[in-house]
Design a protein around this nucleic acid. Structure first.
Lengths: 218, 218
DNA sequence: TCCAGTTTGTTCTCACGTTCACAAAGTGCT
DNA sequence: AGCACTTTGTGAACGTGAGAACAAACTGGA
């Protein structure tokens, strides 16, 4: 909405860097809470579990927010990263599929504290309707369009079984959702312009098992 | 244990490829269940959501399991990938931290069907002990060493709050666990030789929010 | 057997990501 | 002010990953 057409905000940040910014932000919050006012790239890198050169390069994509010979002001840098990744605004989110995982997600406090507000929990199973999870009551999946429109929801979370996920995604996209976080173990097909990120619990374990097997055979 | 010191199994597969093998495997299982005996790289790539050139290159690291002019035998390739990533063997797993997420993980059927067997659920809170989740009863965290030794557990899952995670990791490593899947939002410090993979639910949402913000400002 | 058609496995090129190494830019003591 | 010291920001080298393109290898029909 703001009339910034200058190149100031037009820098494009590499994907790998974007994925690390939330980690830096978390480390900065911890430092801030422990009363640290200033930190060097070395300290922050250690707290975030990365190489300090990588950290400095990542931060350089945002701008020059450090002071040579001194380091970074913790609160200032924290604000700059938060703004860059959109954490200074409020993101309404819907969660579809209130099984075990949906429950866990609805109750996860890390969403709320990072600007995500769960505005609705939806499930196709009528037995679950009007159950209250984390202070929000579970409603019929068919309310999706109404809720998305009314609350301006741009981000949806899919925590349904695999066979329902594509249908849910189609409905979400049609309703106006533009970003989807998918926990169902299927590859979703979505139109151009819609972002999907997938979290697959068993794939992570399988990757560990691969390396474990390698260690055992070494 | 086997005396294979030959170079046959010594190929090292790129990390990016390892991360995709479970996806291919899942697609093959689906194809197999739908009665498909043979598939081309094009078909399999579509089912897995990747480029066919990438798929062929990935598979070439495992060996030459296709037939030119024909394609891949679904069941044969499925077995080869399963073997490569260790899914033909049984992996005992312990889960520590039986809150909302721990419940969801314990109940997740995708683990069992991929060779992972949850042998113990541990929690520090005595109120949770002897609660039964997914047919396994919750036991005191102090039983960790005993269970790891008795069952030969190599993989541990951490689903505790952030402040407990490092302690749990230290105990796991001391007990003999060599791979850790960490759901707690902290960077774990572990000794050389121990693998850690991290799944962070809110980071994924934050990455989506970043892109969402970009779309809105475009 | 030969030939047209199909599909794999691999080579080559380009893009992206990581790390090193250092000039630039600050601080604070004398 | 000058100088020793610290730490950032970045250019350049290196390594890994993605995709295009094609030769090699197979099928099936004439």
């Amino acid at each position: 909405m703001t009339a910034k057409a200058t190149s100031e905000s037009a820098r494009d940040i590499p994907e790998a860097t974007v994925a690390r910014l939330p980690v830096y932000l978390r480390a900065l919050v911890t430092l801030s809470e422990s009363g640290t006012a200033t930190c060097s790239s070395e300290e922050l890198a250690a707290a975030a579990g990365v190489n300090s050169a990588k950290l400095r390069k990542d931060l350089s994509y945002l701008g020059s927010y450090g002071t040579r010979g001194v380091g970074y002001d913790v609160d200032y840098l924290r604000y700059q990263i938060a703004r860059e990744i959109g954490q200074t605004q409020d993101w309404p989110v819907v969660i579809v599929g209130i099984g075990n995982l949906g429950h866990a997600l609805a109750n996860y406090s890390g969403f709320r504290s990072r600007g995500f507000r769960v505005v609705a929990l939806l499930d196709a199973d009528p037995d679950r309707h009007h159950e209250v999870v984390a202070g929000v009551d579970v409603r019929p999946f068919d309310d999706l369009e109404k809720i998305v429109a009314a609350q301006g929801v741009a981000i949806g979370v899919i925590a349904t079984p695999a066979n329902a996920a594509q249908d849910v995604a189609d409905r979400m996209v049609a309703a106006g959702v533009r970003s989807i976080l998918n926990f169902a173990p299927v590859v979703l097909n979505v139109p151009e312009g819609v972002d999907v990120r997938k979290v697959d619990l068993s794939i992570e374990l399988q990757i560990l098992a691969y390396h474990e097997q390698r260690k055992a055979n070494a």
